[in-house]
Amino acid sequence: MLLSLDAATVRFGGRAVLDAVGLDVAEHEVVCVLGPSGSGKSTLLRAVAGLQPLSGGRVLLDGRDQAGVPAHRRGIGLMFQDHQLFPQRDVGANVAFGLRMHGVARSERDAEVGQLLELVGLPGAGRRAVASLSGGEQQRVALARALAPRPRLLMLDEPLGQLDRSLRERLVVELRELFGRLGTTVLAVTHDQGEAFALADRVVVMRDGRIAQSGTPLEVWQRPADAFVARFLGFDNVVPATVAGTAADSPWGKLPVPEGSAQGARTLLVRPAGVRLVAADAGLPCTVAARTFKGTHVTVRLRPGDGPRLEAACALRDAPEVGDGVGVEFDAAEIVVLD
C-alpha cells in the first residue's frame, strides 16, 4: 500500500476530529473522501501531509511510519482548498517553487514549468500575475504547482469547491483523464457527491471523524451503508420499517422489497424513481405539496394522509399540479433495505 492510515486519531480539546480512522490507498488509485463539512475530512489530509500531528495511531507511506517526518520531507503534494498561490510571485515562479526547493537546476526547471502549464491547459502563462487569473485558471496553476515536484501522493482539498457549476463539471472530467494518463495516486476530499463519483475509483464517506462507508461509486450509490449515508447522498425517503419476507411494514403502509433483503427492524430507502404516481383512487392517497423542475425530470413532494412526506420523480408531461390529489404505488426494484 502506498498510503495506510492505522487507527489515526486527532483530538482538538477533548473532541476527536479523526476517530481511529483506518484507510488504505494503493498506487495509481484515485480515492475520494466524501463528507459534510466538519466531518474531519480536511483534518485527514492535513494529518497525512504532516501539517497536523496525530493524537494517536499511525500514518504509513510505502509501509514506513511518518511520525517525526516533517511536512517538507514527506514527498506529498497538497492542493489547498482556496489554492494558496503565492501572491507576490508570477505563475511560472509558483509552479517552479517546489522544483526550486528540491534543488532542480534552472534550465531544467524552466522546461518542466513550460510542460506542466501546457499539461493543465495554460501554455505560455508563466509570466502572468497570480492576481490576474480567474478562479478556474488559479485552480489549474495550483494543480501544476502541486504536480511539479512529482509527489508520490497527490492530495486535493475541495479541488473544485469554489468554481461555478459548469466549469466544475468540465474540470472534473479533465482531472480524471489527467490522473489516468499520469498514473498519479490521488487522495481527494469533497462535500460534493457528484464530484466524488465522477473523479474517484473508490469513495470513502466520512461522518463525525469516522468512516461510514467505503466502496466504488456504484456500490455506494446503489447500497448506502446506513440512513446517514443515504440522506447525505440526497435521498429523502428514508424511514424505519419492519421487513418480513418480500414485504415491509412502513409508515406508508405495506411496501414491496427485493427478494433476499435483510429481515426484521430495518431502515428503508425508497428512491424517488420507485414512487409511481397513479390515479387518485388507487394506492396510497397523497396531496401534491410542491414540485421542482430538474431539467430531465420533475421532483414532486407528496403529503400522504399518514406518515412522512414522500419524494417522487416523474416525467414533465406526467407531473401533477400543486394541490392535486394522487395515488402512489411502490416499485420493489427501487427500494433498498439498509443494513
Binding site: G50, P70, H72, L78, F80, F97, G98, H102, A146, P149
Partner: peptide
C-alpha cells in the same frame, strides 16, 4: 496555509 503550502512543496 501559505506557509503550509510552501512546506508541502518541500521548503524547510
Amino acid at each position: 496555509r501559505l506557509r503550509e503550502a510552501a512546506a508541502v512543496l518541500g521548503a524547510s
